[in-house]
């Protein structure tokens, strides 16, 4: 084991060099570049046109979601109109009655929240091990974990389900249908990418820092929590956002692994398409309600995200 240690330290030495660009700086400062010469007019016009088109392309579905959620059912199922004929907030009141949306919302929140917390904690430990330690099997571990990213979900949907059921049968812990099963599943889905990003981030944190902490008498975990984790905040935020989003949006596994009690928003929204008709205005209203927290959170944290990616994934 000991013979791998110099390698690690050698890496650190190189990493110390561009210390000025450590992520902590990037997190606070929005890098603003101004060229000494102003860009040519043609460039400015290209920029205007391309970005405007892109903005329209991006925003249209969001606008449709919003405007349709304010329409009456007749209006929304009739020919398309850009603006609601009669503005109504009724869909926002009805969505809670047509399906138990509040329960689905709470389920999604519980599942995504728990999966995210667990995933980030576990990923931090794993990434710390990979980044700061050289040990046998390190490469096998990283390659294996990362390669799971290419597994088609459909291949292990049924096996995973059966495994949960068997665990339930042998241990008496009812996993199938429980939020716990979904939490375990989602947290594992996000682990590979999270570990990968955090390793990249941890690698960019000067090793001096935690070694100083080690010298000061902190254990390796003390160094991790007192030094590395605070320094890696943007990376951890990025991973948190990524994990939460993944868990909040997953459809396939939720469709098989939940029941009426534990159904998440992803599946619950199907409930607005009923035997008699599709309540399109309610679908849109409920979609917005399901989107607002995540989009708001994402936009609030996007600066961290960019900084986290800059230092983590991008390197």
């Amino acid at each position: 084991m000991a013979d791998t240690a110099p390698t690690a330290d050698a890496r650190t030495a190189v990493r110390k060099a561009p210390g000025a660009r450590t992520p902590r700086v990037g997190a606070r400062r929005e890098p603003v570049r101004r060229s000494p010469t102003a860009p040519p007019r043609s460039f400015v016009w290209t920029r205007r046109i391309v970005l405007t088109l892109l903005a329209v392309f991006t925003a249209t579905p969001v606008y449709v979601m919003l405007s349709s959620s304010l329409k009456t059912l007749d209006d929304v199922t009739g020919s398309f109109r850009w603006f609601p004929g009669d503005l109504t907030v009724q869909p926002y009141l009805d969505i809670w009655e047509t399906v138990p949306l509040a329960r689905y919302f709470l389920n999604s929140l519980t599942v995504a929240g728990a999966a995210t917390v667990c995933s980030v904690v576990i990923a931090v430990f794993a990434a710390y091990a990979v980044s700061r330690h050289r040990f046998r099997g390190r490469r096998v571990f990283t390659v294996t974990v990362l390669s799971t990213q290419m597994f088609p979900g459909i291949l292990f949907l049924l096996p995973l389900f059966l495994i949960f059921v068997n665990i339930g049968n042998t241990t008496g812990i009812a996993l199938y249908g429980s939020r716990g099963a979904l939490i375990l599943t989602y947290l594992t889905f996000t682990l590979p990418f999270s570990i990968w990003m955090l390793v990249g981030y941890f690698d960019s944190i000067p090793r001096d820092l935690d070694e100083a902490a080690l010298v000061d008498g902190c254990g390796p975990l003390g160094a991790l929590f007192r030094v590395v984790v605070p320094a890696a905040t943007p990376g951890i935020v990025a991973v948190t956002v990524y994990s939460f989003m993944t868990a909040w949006g997953e459809v396939l596994f939720a469709s098989v692994m939940t029941n009426g009690e534990t159904r998440t928003l992803a599946i619950g929204l199907q409930g607005y398409a009923t035997q008699t008709q599709v309540y399109w205005n309610q679908v849109m209203a409920a979609s917005l309600v399901a989107s607002v927290p995540i989009v708001a959170g994402f936009l609030l944290l996007q600066r961290y995200l960019v900084a986290g990616l800059t230092a983590g994934a991008v390197k």
Binding site: V62, G249, L265, L269, S287, S291
Partner: peptide, 18 residues
């Protein structure tokens, strides 16, 4: 930039249903 990130942030079901 915030606007451009919205499609990525939106839950996939909400976006694709729309």
């Amino acid at each position: 930039r915030a606007l451009f990130l919205v499609p990525y942030a939106l839950p996939v079901y909400a976006a694709v249903i729309t």
